[in-house]
Write a protein that binds this DNA or RNA. Sequence first.
RNA 1: GCCCUUGUGGUGGAAUGGUAGACGCGGCGGACUCAAAAUCCGCUAUCGAAAGAUGUGGGGGUUCAAGUCCCUCCAAGGGCACCA
Length: 863
Amino acid sequence: MTSERYNSREAEPRWQQYWSESRCFEAIEDVSRPKYYVLEMFPYPSGRIHMGHVRNYTMGDVIARFKRACGFNVLHPMGWDAFGMPAENAAMERGVHPKAWTYENIAAMRTQLKSMGLSLDWSRELATCDPSYYRHEQAMFIDFMKAGLVERKVSLVNWDPVDQTVLANEQVIDGRGWRSGAVVEKRELAQWFLKITDYSEELLQALDSLEKWPEKVRLMQRNWIGRSEGLRFSFDLEDEHGNLLNEKLTVYTTRHDTIFGASFCAVSADHELARRCSESDAGLVEFRREVSALGTSEENIERAEKKGYALGIYARHPFLAGTRLPVYAANFVLMGYGEGDIFGCPAHDQRDWDFARKYGLPILPVVAPRNVALQDPNEPFIEKEGADIVLVNSDFLDGMTVAEAKDEVAARFEAAGTGERKVNFRLRDWGVSRQRYWGCPVPVIHCPVCKIVPVPKSDLPVVLPEDVTFDKPGNPLLHHPTWRFVKCPQCGSDAQRETDTFDTFIDSSWYYARFCSPHASVPVEADAARYWMPVDQYIGGVEHAILHLLYSRFFARAMGKTHHLNWDEPFASLFTQGMVVHETFQLGNGEWVFPVDAVLKDGSWFHAKTGEPLTIGGIEKMSKSKRNVIDPESIIASYGADTARWFMLSDSPPERDIEWTEAGAEGAWKFTQRLWRLVNEASAFGSGEFKGEFGTAALELRRVAHRSLAAVTDDLSSLRFNRAIARIYELANALGSALATANPTADVAFVIREAADFLTLMFAPMMPHLAEECWKVLGHTRPVVETAWPKPLAGLIVDDEVTIAVQVNGKRRDEIKLPKGLAKDKIEVAVMQLEGVKRALDGKAVVKFIVVPDRIVNIVIGG
RNA sequence: GCCCUUGUGGUGGAAUGGUAGACGCGGCGGACUCAAAAUCCGCUAUCGAAAGAUGUGGGGGUUCAAGUCCCUCCAAGGGCACCA
């Protein structure tokens, strides 16, 4: 027994060294053992870890250590998502080379992660900016090209004028670049695309099989893919004078049932028809210019304003001879969806309604609730799903339901050969070209003779040149004096390298597979992948719910098509953890203040150095801009990694946000000390076996120990860390009480040792260093990492006596202790004797007597 | 606008349709101490002296029984957004 405090500063590095030297976390394929692959989203090497990393990697580590103890062969690797703009910004701002900056950051963050005591297999570490990683990416891209998964097309792209690069649709948020925040412009550029839309249907369908993903994420992906079933058909066109034109207008619609309510057609400003008409119409030229200048961003402000420009062309109604619909170019019609044009049915669509009101077009209701007077004529009627709605004013469709009408219209178009049923998706192909330096070079050569030539695989990797400058905007690779000038590998002509690099989302779309065989000469070794894939548990922030996770799901399929991987869904189970939030402090002038500079005096906050009063702002996600950050390194230095880990798991459920508080950290630190004291005290109670009958006191503690163990096992299996921690507190409390008993008997002494053992093993996944120290104190010679998770005895988990609550008319009136599993009639007799029951019955007759075995009794009385 | 999630003590949060508030923080009281820190013990939803009554965002419903299921409204958070 010792009265000394637990010294994390001394113990933690010692155990980290032991784990490292014993190489116990290095995973080796072993087909005779069940595997478990746990992965946290790998970090961008920004330079320092933040609390979000601590939370993310702690959760993963608890799972990894728990599964290891349960007998699984665990793979728990770590790497670096190391390409990207911040490295180039550092180069431009501070003159440091992106490569040097990145690798220094990796070294610093690796040290920090190691100080957390994570059970990582560092022998599999990888960095995406390393040629040994990206050469395989290049090889796979070439294979993707051959497999028809790559397309180069001139397209209207999102151009970020600050970063001087193209952004994917997914990277444009509210019309602004996701990184720079600059208003995005439209430009036409030849770009590389990965054909993710080839898999739209499959990526959507397979979401149903991802039962261990949060429903929220699946729903977000479903909406993003955006499948809709509709009809594509053609209108005949005529000019002002009714002369049939030699072309048709093909539209896509999901509401072909409302065809009789159509009163106009509208095409996008970029539509071919609008382009052609503008050749002879200066007003239209101006209109088109206006629309494109508006861009995606300003449109938010102008949203309500629906504008159109009549083309002087008319569409003939397919079912009403003599009826014609004016065709407009309109600002609210998107070129990128369907055919880039629509027919408008103002009575049943808000936008069409607005447009029709503005331009004085007819508004004819064609669907209405059955047997109900027509709707308010001042508003469009947008019906709800499943309501009892029928067609009206619609000729041969009158009286049909919406579904019937759709069928009928589609059938008529198909019979006439002027239309077909069609499924449309919102998902676009993935533009992967970036005009940046710090990324994986696209392994392609442009030859004036052979055109596009993939770099021969024997010439891979195409290595980024290091002698580049960052003194002007744009792509440094384009400015490099020699790098891009090469001979064509096919014909030997003077040719040029592609200077675009890949979107960094490609790097992170397959790293999970590379971890299976990080040193292999092929992207992924088949045997290793067959053993380790899929990732059994993936953990990360919900901000990646769409981009990263959808790209990864696509990439796995593309790798399947090119025989690099044999697993479609890379992440069997997904967990999205909440953020770490903190109070914000502000000076009078609005400047944000770091929490370390804020001090509490007499109930008010002041700046520690200047003494200025501070105002407390909201509790928000830790961010550099608001300065409400706590540096994990200083927390680990003062409290130890175990305390930081414990705090990250306590109190808040893991999917919810957690607020970092000094008091909470202090509380976690006190508990580590308490565990240390309890275990030391318990270790004094012999170590012998106990054979014989356990007394009541011993049995009671034993029950708590085994029950806690069962509960913690269950909670850890389902990632309910906060509940597991509550159970551990309970056992610690029970053990503390038992230790306070004067002169415990031999049976109690045995149970105290057993409880201390259980307790230590139970908190070991969360506080691994402390657990190893405690385990040693308890006299064990093999470390915790080599100790199996204990199994609770079934007989001790259930009581043979249960407390049954007694209700009268649903209100709790009394309770009674009875033997478990007592027959209903016996329970009734016993319950009727209770004082509380008699009082509540007040002599009234019992109508019904409900017994839920071993839980509750409800006596229903009249009156 | 559409879709989703969440509303429980002073506070973070527990609760297979079956005793609401486990466990932690905070608070109050006590022990130890010359004293403090640390530690340990007890109490801590609200009203009430008690019996009891009330109580899981508001209103309604299903049920012997509702925080939990259904309808509706309100609030907060998130996602998508001229997607035809």
